[in-house]
Structure formats: C-alpha cells, structure tokens
C-alpha cells in the first residue's frame, strides 16, 4: 500500500490492534492466579512508589491554586471563603485526578513502555511465548490491573495533600483562615465531585498502563525503538488523559 494510505490508516490499525490486545488481556484474567505475584509487584511500583512524587505535585497544585484564586477573585464584594469553594472542588473534580495522571504518565507510562520495549527488542517476550507462557497475561494484565487499582488510591492521596497544601498556603499568605476555607468548601460542596474524580482516576489508570503496555509490547527496532516507544507512551498517555477528561466531563456532568 502507498505510504500515504498507510499513514491515514495507521490510527485505525493501532486502535484495532489495541482492542485485540486488551481483549486478549481480558481473556487472560482467568489465569490471574498464575500472575498474582507479578500483580503485587506492579501494585507497589505503580502505586506505593509513586505516592511521594504525586503528593509533592498535589501539594504545590493546591497551594498555587489557592494563591491564584485569592489573587483573581477576592475583592470587597467576594468573601474570602470563596477560595475554599474554588480550590476544593478544583482538586476533587479535576486537579487531583489529572495531576496524578500526568505524573504517572511520565513516571509509570514511560517505565512500562521501556520495560516491555526492551523485552521485545531483546526477544525476551518471544522466549516467554516459546516457553508456553502467555506473555500478555504475564506482562500486560498485572500492569493494567495495578494501574486501575492504584490510580484511585493515588487520587485520594493527591486530594488530601492538595487540600492541606491549599490550607497551609492560605494561612501562610494570610488570604483566608482555615475555618473560612473549610466553610467555603462545605457551602459549595458538590456531592458528585469526589465520585467523578474517582471515575476519572479509574479511566486514567487504565489508559496510562494500557497504552504504555501496547506501545512497549509492539516496539520495533533496537535501543532507538525503545527510546521512541518510551517518549511516545508518555506523550500518548498525556494526550489521552486530556481527551478522556473532556469526554467524561461531557458525559457525566
């Protein structure tokens, strides 16, 4: 086929191959007992090892959001507690999930793509297949499941640390007291906000790990191919997070 046609059809080809890969992974769930140990390792690597960097990013997100909200909104006509009413829903509905997703795209997505890409170019995956192991079940399913399970956990941690960071920065800069901050958050509390953020975290967890696994699993070339796969996994994860964020907001809000 001409190259132009290949370029046009490439996205559809990728979507089809991605769907088949995930179908195979879903079919491999019945073998999950075999890969339980690997699943635990991925839970620790994707989830627990990411808590410090996610907490750091969330704390600064909360603090910056608070200061900027105070800078933009507070006036004699607007009470300071509005800062809490803006910062807390921003964290629970948007920043908590998206910041966590971006952090994990770079940290986890790139690592997964590099691991699987290296295994592909060094023919370790072929060796697994030759030994009769289900490479998809062994390599992809634990990572994707770990991402789906741990992203919501990281989201909760990010929200907690972000809100605390916002309160601390509000107190330090003197723009609003802790009591007013919490009062404003309570007055404008959106019942669905945390659940919406949780749903986002599930989706982002799936997207980051699944796309990274897909890109790494089908890496071509040598070290250069691994490098490209790593970069592509991080970029694609971030782009898909943004797209999914918009789609979820349209669908659920």
């Amino acid at each position: 086929m001409p190259s132009i046609v290949l370029r046009i059809t490439q996205p559809f080809f990728d979507i089809g191959r991605f769907t088949m890969l995930m179908s195979s992974a879903f079919m491999s769930l019945r073998e999950m007992g075999t890969y339980w140990q690997n699943f635990q390792i991925q839970l620790v690597r994707i989830g627990i090892d990411s808590i410090p960097i996610v907490a750091l990013a969330a704390a600064f997100s909360g603090a910056v959001t608070t200061v900027q909200t105070a800078y933009q909104l507070v006036s004699p006509l607007i009470p300071p507690r509005i800062i809490g009413a803006v910062v807390v829903p921003s964290l629970t509905m948007e920043l908590g999930a998206v910041v966590t997703g971006f952090i994990l795209s770079g940290r986890v997505g790139a690592r997964i793509a590099a691991e699987l890409g290296t295994m592909r170019v060094t023919e370790q995956i072929d060796a697994l297949e030759a030994m009769g192991l289900n490479s998809i079940g062994y390599l992809i399913v634990p990572r994707v499941l770990a991402g789906i399970v741990m992203l919501p956990v990281l989201y909760v941690a990010a929200c907690l640390v972000g809100i605390v960071g916002g309160i601390v920065s509000a107190e330090l800069t003197g723009v609003v007291s802790t009591g007013e901050f919490i009062q404003g958050a309570r007055e404008h509390w959106n019942f669905f906000g945390p659940y919406f953020g949780l749903i986002k975290a599930f989706v982002f967890g799936f997207l980051i790990t699944a796309v990274s696994c897909y890109i790494g699993y089908y890496t071509k070339g040598g070290a250069d191919g691994v490098g490209r796969s790593t970069t592509r996994a991080a970029v694609m994860s971030c782009v898909l997070i943004l797209v999914a964020d918009l789609i979820l907001a349209i669908l659920l809000l």
């Binding site: 635990q40 919501p152 956990v153 909760v156 958050a185 309570r186 945390p194």
Partner: peptide
C-alpha cells in the same frame, strides 16, 4: 511485605475518602 504495604495503602485511602466526604458534607 508487599501484601501488607498494598493492603495498608488501599484501606487508608478508603478511610480518607469516606472521612473526607463526610467532613465536607458536614455530617
């Protein structure tokens, strides 16, 4: 052990989520 770390993290996140929602709903 990994099991303990994972279990503690997940349970703690669940508790924080529940308490946070109750707190901000003033319940």
């Amino acid at each position: 052990p990994n099991e303990l770390k994972i279990g503690l993290t997940v349970v703690l996140a669940g508790i924080i989520f529940y308490v946070g929602i109750r707190f901000f709903r003033d319940l």
